[in-house]
Design a protein around this nucleic acid. Sequence first.
DNA 1: GCGCCGATTGGCT
DNA 2: GCCAATCGGCGCC
Length: 199
Amino acid sequence: MSAGRRAATLPVRFFSRPAEIVARELIGTIMRSEVDGVVTAGRIVETEAYLGESDPASHGYLGRRNTRNAAIFGPPASWYVYLSYGMHWCANLVAAREGEAAAILIRALEPLEGIEAMRARRGSVADRHLCAGPGRLCQALGITRDLDGRMMDGSPVLVHAGPAAEPSPIRAGPRIGITKAADWPLRFVLAGSPWISRP
DNA sequence: GCGCCGATTGGCT
DNA sequence: GCCAATCGGCGCC
């Protein structure tokens, strides 16, 4: 029918695997938002895996549920969005199996589309900082609690495969900004990318 | 009910 | 490099 073809959203089975695998393979994929009629998109260059009830840093550690973290216990390929430090939204994709509390925090994007809209939402910051951090990218893409608990497919924010050739290597390192089990090598970055939140 | 802490960020020393 | 902003959850009185 139409000449244009939208890239296929990553399927549920992609997310139905261990969170550290999903976190690594999300590097290089494209995150696309359409909020208030505005399209913004970027390449995922930094992620962090949280492994579930047995991971002291997971919001679902020991299976403890509350109002804020309910969505992390949801099905794979659904969003878990929470308010950090009372100010910043942070977006995760739920992975593994429903009830496990495993999720991938999206930590940085390379801006690709809707950059003017990102600038308008972010205020006067250097382009380098438009999406360099979990709170920053949510602001740039217009992500708020509205996304929390929704299945990715059919929601305003989707992730789809990036360009076929991805020559740049992916590096793993310690997680950032946490105090418990921070040294677990569950942060993944696109090596050499200038768009990551921290070197 | 009260105080402390956190998967952060931006401004100031 | 240090620190305040700001709010929900949790431990404790």
